[in-house]
Simulated assay, not measured.
Amino acid sequence: MYITITAQKLGGGYSQSSADFAEYLEKENQGLEQEDVEHFFNQYGDEIEAKEVVKEIDGNTAKLKKKEPKFYSITVSPSKYELRKLQNNSEDLKKYTRAIMNDYATSFNREINGKPITVDDIKYFAKIEHQRTFKGTDKQVKENQPYASKILQLKTDIRKIENHQLDGNVKKMKSQIIKLEAEAPHQQNGKRIVQGMKKSGNQSHIHIIVSRKDASNSVSLSPGSKHKASQVEMHGKIVKRGFDRDSFFTKAESTFDKTFGYKRNYAESYKSKKDFIKNPKLYFTTLLGLPGSEKAIAFKMLSKSGVPIMSIPTNQVQLALKTIRTLKRGVDVAIKSGSIGI
């Protein structure tokens, strides 16, 4: 499970409207039949139109300054292993979204009118998407780039030859292009992976747009707060503040496991990510200490994520810091790819 929470930052500042973001989330519906369209939804409603989302989010910004975000974006990307547990991608992910928004609400160390925050205090809208495209920052695109540059140059030269601006053998150049296309290290369905290409397989994920203000438009709720859970005196009163991201991520993972009966391996757990970041030696020691069947699954998951499994030591003595640093780079890539951890 890979979850991100980001402020609605666009360019150098904050847009005064959620319209661009809502329009961006509508892109996948273009050209689809009505029965295939994915609509926005919230805790209690389905088939909500984008214009209604914009109206509700933009109208819920009382007393927010121009330099403050008006909403936050939460992206929830289940791994391919987790997606296999779903019976119906769209309906199951809607069910899961509504469950983790309860977790989101209870991760605030805040009260409204003396009561703990509940999901009814959160104004949000969500949308399921089933496609992803390769970005320029993806490893596959970056490592294919030298081949892409050579292919582009050859195509440019061919056009110049055809326009009598350059001398050369077009047939030979076209053969070189075919060879370069085949030699590119990252392929999908027999084609070189390029930026903008749709990723194959089940790519279902969730986008959630959450208003910075509560549903009553009176209290500011920031999941970007630097305060995890604390109390401060304001105007002579003790006020609770903060949002516990660690708690939210842990609850979100647990909620998925309970909802869909998912047996989570250590290698894909949120705990493993924390161990990996804070104490790499503990991470690999725990990994190697797993029961045989669980260890085999863990290594398989890691290998699928690009970690050099052949370099993983086979006993505790071999857990040298140099080896750990080498493996750490591979696991770090796997975590960022969303294959393991949150």
Rank of each mutant, 00 (worst) to 15 (best):
T97Y: 06
A148T: 14
H130T: 10
R159P: 03
Y147A: 04
D167Q: 14
E129Y: 01
P78F: 02
T133A: 12
G136N: 13
D167E: 15
K171W: 13
I158H: 11
I158A: 12
Y147G: 10
K67R: 13
K63I: 07
K65H: 07
K85V: 04
T61N: 05
N89I: 05
N144H: 06
K135P: 02
T61R: 03
Q131A: 14
E129K: 10
A99D: 01
T97L: 08
H164W: 09
E56K: 14
P69E: 11
Y104K: 04
Y104G: 06
L93Q: 06
Y104L: 03
D167H: 13
R159H: 12
Q87P: 05
G114M: 11
V119G: 08
V76A: 09
P69W: 03
I128N: 04
L86M: 11
K63Q: 08
K66F: 05
M173D: 09
A148D: 08
G114S: 03
G59F: 04
N109T: 10
P69V: 05
Q145M: 12
K55T: 09
D138W: 05
Y81G: 04
K95F: 02
E82A: 12
N102D: 15
T118G: 12
M101N: 05
I128Q: 03
N113M: 09
H164Y: 13
E82H: 11
P78C: 00
G114R: 10
L86K: 11
R159T: 14
R132D: 09
G136C: 08
A148P: 01
N144G: 09
K123C: 03
E181L: 11
L152V: 02
F71A: 02
G114H: 06
L152G: 13
D103Q: 13
F71G: 00
Q131H: 12
K94S: 01
T133E: 10
K123G: 00
D92H: 04
I128W: 08
Y147E: 03
I117P: 12
H130R: 03
G168P: 07
R110Q: 12
K94R: 10
D92W: 06
D138L: 09
E68F: 01
S107N: 10
K63Y: 07
D92L: 04
P78A: 02
T137A: 11
K80Q: 09
K55H: 14
Q176E: 12
L86N: 08
D157A: 09
K115W: 11
M101W: 02
V54C: 00
K150Q: 12
V141D: 06
P116I: 07
G136V: 09
E111H: 07
I74W: 05
N88K: 11
G168R: 11
Q176P: 01
S77T: 15
S149C: 10
K123I: 01
V170W: 02
V53E: 01
K95S: 07
L64E: 00
V54T: 02
I158Y: 10
V119D: 14
A126V: 00
I112F: 14
V141L: 13
V170I: 15
Y72T: 05
T156G: 06
Q131V: 15
L166V: 05
E91T: 15
Q145D: 10
K150M: 07
K155P: 00
L166N: 05
L86C: 07
H130C: 03
K160I: 09
S77V: 15
V54Y: 00
N89W: 01
T156I: 12
H130S: 08
P116T: 06
T133C: 09
N169P: 06
E129R: 06
A148Q: 15
T61P: 01
